[in-house]
Amino acid sequence: MLILECPYCGVKAEETELSPGYEAHLKRFGPGSSDTEFEDYMFARKNPKGVHFERWRHVYGCGKWFLAARDTATLEVFGTYAAQSSAPPAALQDKIKAKRPDWKGYK
């Protein structure tokens, strides 16, 4: 059972205090987008074995959504950060690169 530190309130929350929100950094496509764009937005998920960026909500806590970088195979947590981020913080990306040299980036 995971522990993720909520970047808003600092609580090291266990999984039962959180609710998952699946892949992070998706770009929303609304009216006017192509079928392919919309399909990617709705359905195409990376589901990687390895480094993954996810949304979590501290639902039994401060109620805020945050983002987490995690290895889906080893469950190592590289870091958590605010949901109001269009890309993972540079320092976090450096940390992941150092730990996982084969990592291709978050996009």
């Binding site: 929100g21 929303r28 949304r55 909500r57 639902v59 959504w65 949901a83």
Partner: peptide, 13 residues
């Protein structure tokens, strides 16, 4: 309520 907060926190912050 969670749906509203999701959009407000994560998309239209």
């Amino acid at each position: 309520h969670a749906w509203m907060e999701d959009w407000l926190q994560c998309e239209w912050w």
